[in-house]
Structures are given as C-alpha cells and as structure tokens.
C-alpha cells in the first residue's frame, strides 16, 4: 500500500496534526512501509473467527450509577493553559 502526499495530508487532517511540508516525503515513505507490513495480515485465514478486543474476553465491569467524585475543579484546572471563572478558555468558535 503506497501512500502519497495528498493521503498523508488527509490523514493528518483527520488526526488534527500539523505537519511541516518538508517532512511530507518522510511521512509518506514511513506510512507506506508500515501499511505494507500491515498488509501481511491479509494472508491469514480468518473466516468465521470472532475479533478479540479484550485479551481475556472479559466483560466490562459496571458500577452503581452514583456520584462518587467530589468537585475538584480548581485543583484540576491548575494544569490548564487558560481558564476564567472556572471555565476552560479556547479561541472563539462562533462569531
């Protein structure tokens, strides 16, 4: 599977990653060789095989729907780049 510049740009957009134009060749080459590796999967006969998501086939454990967390807003917002009045600030989204 060969990946070209346009495809790299499309994937980077999906993943919200800004790439430098000078790196595009390297990424195209690397991603192509990784997908070539992934294509080896196609040789396996997996007819009728159930996909395995959890290695122990374990069910998600549920808990009672009760509030157990205390409010730690100030403590947790100490790592935020920008806050005001307890809110996270981001660039303007709606004009």
């Amino acid at each position: 599977m060969s990946i070209d510049h346009d495809q790299v740009a499309k994937i980077a957009e999906l993943a919200r990653l800004k790439l430098e134009p000078s790196q595009m060749d390297q990424y195209a080459e690397n991603l192509s060789s990784i997908l070539d590796l992934a294509d080896q999967l196609q040789a396996a006969d997996t007819d009728g095989i159930e996909p395995l998501a959890n290695p122990l086939d374990a069910e998600q454990r549920l808990r009672a729907d009760k509030v157990t967390e205390t409010n730690q807003r100030e403590h947790l917002q100490k790592n935020a780049p920008s806050t005001e009045a307890g809110l996270f600030l981001v660039p303007k989204v709606i004009e």
Partner: peptide, 20 residues
C-alpha cells in the same frame, strides 16, 4: 490550536502511530 498544539507537542514516532 488543535493542529499546531499536536504538531508541536508530539514527536515523529507518536505522529506516525496516530496517523496509522
């Protein structure tokens, strides 16, 4: 903000794996 933050914050191998 999203794209530059992630473009600057992650190194090459992490970006490769996110894209794959």
């Amino acid at each position: 903000m999203y794209t530059r933050t992630r473009g600057e914050g992650f190194g090459d191998e992490v970006k490769r794996r996110i894209m794959v």
